[in-house]
């Protein structure tokens, strides 16, 4: 196992590469989740803001 991790002396380079890919994927996936939650929050805010306008007129207006 230790020998495998050493990658014939190139362990530092190989695992720095794969490690950064792992970090990049995690950062992107966590960011996606957060983006989604923020989007729904903004949607709720915007709709709440416009709710009074809609109450005045008939039907929903497109932005």
């Amino acid at each position: 196992m230790i020998e495998w991790l050493a990658m014939g002396g190139y362990g530092f380079y190989v695992w720095s590469s794969y490690g950064m890919l792992a970090i990049a994927l995690i950062v992107e996936l966590v960011g996606l989740r957060r983006h989604r939650r923020e989007s729904w929050r903004r949607v709720a805010d915007m709709r709440a803001e416009h709710a009074s306008e809609w109450a005045a007129g008939p039907g929903e207006s497109k932005p």
């Binding site: 989604r36 989007s39 949607v43 932005p63």
Partner: peptide, 16 residues
């Protein structure tokens, strides 16, 4: 596809 869904709801927030 995941990201475009978030973008869509935000940009179309006021649509039906």
């Amino acid at each position: 596809l995941y990201r475009v869904r978030s973008i869509m709801i935000e940009r179309e927030a006021l649509s039906g």
